[in-house]
Every structure is written in C-alpha cells, then in structure tokens.
Deep mutational scan, measured.
Amino acid sequence: SELMNSSKLIRMLEEDGWRLVRVTGSAHHFKHPKKPGLVTVPHPKKDLPIGTVKSIQKSAGL
C-alpha cells in the first residue's frame, strides 16, 4: 500500500492556503481562511497510510 510523508501532505495543505493554528502532541491542526472546518494531520510521520491521506485531503477539499 502507498504511504505518504506527513511533511509532504502539510506542504500540499499550505499551498492550498491552510495555516497551522494549533499543535496538540503530534496532532497539527490547520484552518483555512475561506474553507470550513479544521483539518488535523499527525506529524511528524514518515508513513501515513494512503487512506488517512485521502481522508485528510477530502476534509481539506483538495
């Protein structure tokens, strides 16, 4: 199965306009000026399962 580095996923979010608002432990929480909701990324993780990545991307509207 495909894995993604959390840094790469965070870069994709930031390029889309998401900004880090809070860190709780290894959970990084992002908000967007125009899009609704809060997106949480486990970080640092070298090997996020593709299912997790897809669900984060979906929440972020990517």
Rank of each mutant, 00 (worst) to 15 (best):
T52F: 14
V21K: 05
H32A: 00
H43Y: 04
G61H: 05
K54M: 07
P36D: 08
L13A: 01
S55M: 12
S55C: 12
L62H: 04
K54D: 09
R11D: 11
S7H: 15
G51F: 08
V53D: 02
M12W: 07
H29T: 14
A27M: 14
K45Y: 08
R11E: 12
K34D: 10
F30Y: 09
D47F: 15
E15H: 10
I10V: 05
P44C: 05
A60P: 02
L9F: 03
L20E: 04
D16R: 04
A60D: 02
T24C: 12
E15R: 09
P33Q: 08
V53L: 06
L3E: 11
R11C: 10
T40L: 08
H43V: 02
I50Y: 09
R19A: 08
G25L: 14
L9N: 01
V23F: 06
S59G: 07
T24A: 11
K58T: 10
R22M: 11
K46F: 14
V53G: 02
R11L: 11
I56N: 02
G25Q: 14
T52H: 06
I56K: 01
V21S: 08
H29P: 00
E2T: 09
A27Y: 15
L48N: 01
E15L: 12
R22L: 11
T52R: 07
H32T: 00
D16T: 04
K58R: 13
K31G: 07
E15P: 00
K54I: 14
P44V: 04
V53S: 04
T52L: 15
K46G: 10
S7C: 13
G51V: 10
N5Y: 06
P33V: 06
V41R: 01
F30L: 05
G37S: 05
R19S: 09
L38A: 07
I50L: 13
H29D: 08
K34T: 14
V53F: 04
A27V: 09
W18T: 00
A27L: 15
K46V: 13
L13E: 00
D16I: 06
W18D: 00
A27K: 10
W18I: 00
S7A: 14
S26T: 11
S7R: 09
E15W: 07
H32R: 01
E2S: 10
G61F: 04
V39A: 04
P33W: 09
E14S: 07
T24W: 10
H43F: 03
I56E: 02
G37F: 04
N5D: 15
T52Y: 08
D47Q: 11
K34L: 10
P42M: 06
A60T: 03
G25N: 14
S6F: 04
T24Y: 11
L38E: 12
W18N: 00
N5R: 06
L62V: 06
V53T: 05
L38K: 07
F30S: 00
L13G: 00
A27D: 13
E14G: 06
L62R: 03
D16C: 05
K35V: 03
K54S: 09
P36T: 09
V23Q: 10
K35D: 01
V41L: 05
S26F: 13
H43K: 02
T52C: 11
H43P: 02
V39L: 07
M12V: 09
Q57W: 14
L3C: 12
P49C: 06
F30E: 00
K8D: 15
P44R: 04
H28Q: 07
L62S: 03
P36R: 11
S59W: 06
L13K: 00
V53I: 11
K8H: 14
K54F: 04
F30G: 00
L20C: 14
L13F: 01
P42I: 05
H29E: 15
S55N: 11
H29G: 06
L62N: 03
P44K: 03
T52K: 08
G37Y: 04
G37K: 05
R22Y: 12
L3F: 11
S1E: 14
M4V: 08
M12T: 07
S59I: 13
E14W: 10
V23A: 13
H28G: 04
H43D: 04
L38D: 07
M12G: 04
A60V: 03
I10G: 01
K34Y: 14
Q57F: 15
H43W: 04
E2P: 09
H32I: 00
L20D: 01
G51S: 14
H29A: 10
H28F: 07
W18Y: 02
T24E: 13
S1L: 10
F30A: 00
G25A: 14
G51L: 11
K58I: 13
G51C: 12
N5G: 13
K8I: 14
S55G: 09
K54L: 08
T40A: 12
M12E: 07
V21D: 06
R19V: 12
D16F: 06
P42H: 05
D47L: 11
S55K: 13
L9R: 01
L13W: 01
K35I: 03
K35M: 03
G37M: 04
P33D: 11
K34V: 14
S1T: 13
W18S: 00
I56W: 01
M12K: 06
G37V: 03
S1Q: 15
R11V: 08
K54R: 14
K31A: 10
K58N: 11
S7N: 09
I10L: 05
I50T: 12
R19W: 08
G61N: 06
L38I: 15
L13Y: 01
I56F: 01
F30W: 02
W18F: 02
G17Y: 02
E2Q: 09
M4K: 07
I56A: 02
V41G: 00
L62F: 04
K35P: 00
D47E: 13
M4H: 08
A60I: 05
I10D: 01
I50F: 10
V39E: 01
K45M: 11
P33I: 06
S1C: 14
S7Q: 10
T24S: 12
L9W: 03
R22N: 08
P49R: 06
P49E: 07
L20V: 09
P42W: 03
K31R: 14
P42F: 05
L48S: 01
W18L: 00
S1F: 05
S1Y: 03
K58E: 15
V23L: 06
E15D: 14
G25H: 15
K46E: 15
Q57E: 08
S59H: 11
G61M: 05
H29Y: 12
M12Y: 07
G17E: 05
E14T: 09
K54T: 08
S55I: 08
G37P: 03
L9I: 09
Q57D: 02
I56P: 01
I56D: 02
V39R: 01
P36V: 08
R22F: 11
K8E: 14
H28N: 09
K31D: 09
L9G: 01
K8F: 15
K35N: 03
M4Y: 10
G51Y: 09
L20M: 07
G37N: 07
G25T: 14
H43M: 03
P36A: 09
W18C: 00
T52S: 06
H28K: 06
S6Y: 04
Q57N: 05
L13P: 00
L38F: 10
K46T: 13
K58V: 12
L9A: 04
S7I: 09
G61Q: 07
L48G: 01
P49Q: 06
I56G: 01
G51Q: 13
V39K: 01
K8S: 13
N5A: 13
L48Q: 01
P49M: 05
V21T: 09
K8P: 03
L62Y: 02
L48F: 05
K34C: 13
P33H: 09
I10S: 02
D16Y: 06
N5C: 15
H32V: 00
G25R: 15
H43Q: 02
A27F: 15
S55Q: 13
V53R: 04
V41W: 01
N5L: 08
N5P: 15
H32Y: 01
T52G: 02
G17I: 00
L3T: 15
H29N: 07
L38V: 13
P33N: 08
L13D: 00
T24F: 10
S6V: 03
V39Y: 01
G17N: 05
A60Y: 01
K58P: 02
L20P: 05
I50K: 07
G25V: 13
N5I: 14
S6E: 01
L3V: 14
D16S: 05
V21H: 11
L38C: 12
L48W: 02
S26K: 13
T40P: 04
H29R: 10
G17F: 03
M12R: 08
A27Q: 14
M4Q: 12
H32M: 00
G17H: 04
P49I: 03
E15S: 08
V41N: 00
V39G: 01
R19P: 00
T40S: 14
K31L: 11
L48P: 01
L3P: 15
K58D: 12
K34W: 13
V23W: 09
H28I: 06
E2L: 08
K35F: 03
I56C: 02
K31F: 07
